[in-house]
Design a protein around this nucleic acid. Structure first.
Lengths: 199, 199
DNA sequence: CAGAAAAATGAACAATGTTCAAAATAATAG
DNA sequence: CTATTATTTTGAACATTGTTCATTTTTCTG
């Protein structure tokens, strides 16, 4: 056999990402460190640096996985809901649920870049498009006369607003919306946005 | 004289916070470390721990200062603008401007808690009320029939949404609103929210 | 199987937050 | 003002972390 090296490479890559995911799910990014991570993954300390260029690189790859799962969750939430308004609400609910169910990973995905020293690589920036992909349809159905550039900006505004509401609330901040009324408020928010369309 | 100790205490406190603020303004939280900080402030390494319980404590105090300045900026932005809608827009613009002009400090204020291991003390959570304080007036003028609890939640929803739009855009993320259209989009967003009120 | 290429290893290094015994300073008493 | 006591400041030492690299082990090739 001749592909053993590559297989081991992939296996190590996966084992490290799995271990990192478990750690972060358990205690957030602050619990992630090279020694416990490699120990969890069952490899030597130095092996981390054969699989990833450094810990930032590993975190970005972990975030990439989270992003894919989040994209799938959003897509699944909108499945079969055709009315634009209902669809926006379903997508927002799906987003909220994923964020609540995967809080630490979700925080890592969005807050890592701001505080880390590293620049986010292009490929990871580009894959964040899944976050807005499914909103384009309903928003353009609700704004039939808007040109495409303005539409894409509007889509991002809507996503950012929903993200902000979810984000500050799940962070248990004083200024956030109380957790138990979050979904209601989020749906009410979308209703209000939609009601004010072409105003 | 008998107050020299207390005076020195305060001086050290201030010198450290000033040095920390300069560092963060220059290169973000990642550039803040105990050694350069105490060196900048002109004191010994160990002195940091006589003024603050640890670095987290110092950062929280720095964030507290930022929060006060942000509160003042928001208040100034709304000064003399009486129409509720115009006022909401003026406050949002003030918020955006402060965030843009004090980006690193603003990021530290909002993103620190999520990633740090420490719990945010009560007093710092409570002072975050300045963020929504000035929105209550105009929102309740626009929703005269809403009861107080619902109003406070609505106020927080609105703030969170504006914060999300500003936050993701200034982070230069792929999914954010393009920087040069941020203010326009933010104002448009508020118009849309307000248009959909009592819908 | 022997030799070459690649990968895995973990000891060693560098950078960081934090502590603490010793030195320096400030307050107080005579 | 001086001596004594109380407090604060100091920075060397320690613990924890990310990262490197010479050595060992594994895998591939002829």
């Amino acid at each position: 056999m001749s592909g053993k090296r590559e297989a081991n490479r992939e296996q190590l890559h996966d084992k490290l990402l799995n271990a990192a995911t478990l750690r972060v799910e358990g205690g957030g990014l602050k619990d992630l460190n090279a020694r416990t991570l490699t120990s969890d993954a069952g490899c030597a300390l130095g092996s981390l640096y054969t699989a990833f260029s450094d810990i930032d690189d590993l975190i970005i790859h972990m975030n990439s996985r989270t992003l894919k799962r989040l994209g799938e969750a959003i897509e699944a939430a909108g499945q079969g809901v055709d009315d634009p308004i209902d669809r926006l609400k379903a997508l927002a609910k799906g987003y909220l649920r994923f964020a609540a169910d995967n809080h630490a990973l979700w925080v890592a995905l969005f807050d890592y870049a701001a505080l880390a020293g590293t620049v986010i690589p292009q490929w990871h920036q580009e894959e964040q498009e899944v976050l807005v992909r499914h909103i384009v349809g309903p928003v353009s159905a609700l704004n039939p006369d808007m040109d495409n550039d303005a539409m894409m900006i509007r889509v991002r505004t809507l996503f950012s607003a929903v993200h902000g509401i979810v984000s500050l609330s799940l962070d248990q901040r004083f200024i956030g919306v109380p957790q138990d009324q979050l979904e209601t408020e989020l749906i009410g928010f979308i209703d209000q946005m939609v009601a004010g369309l072409g105003g």
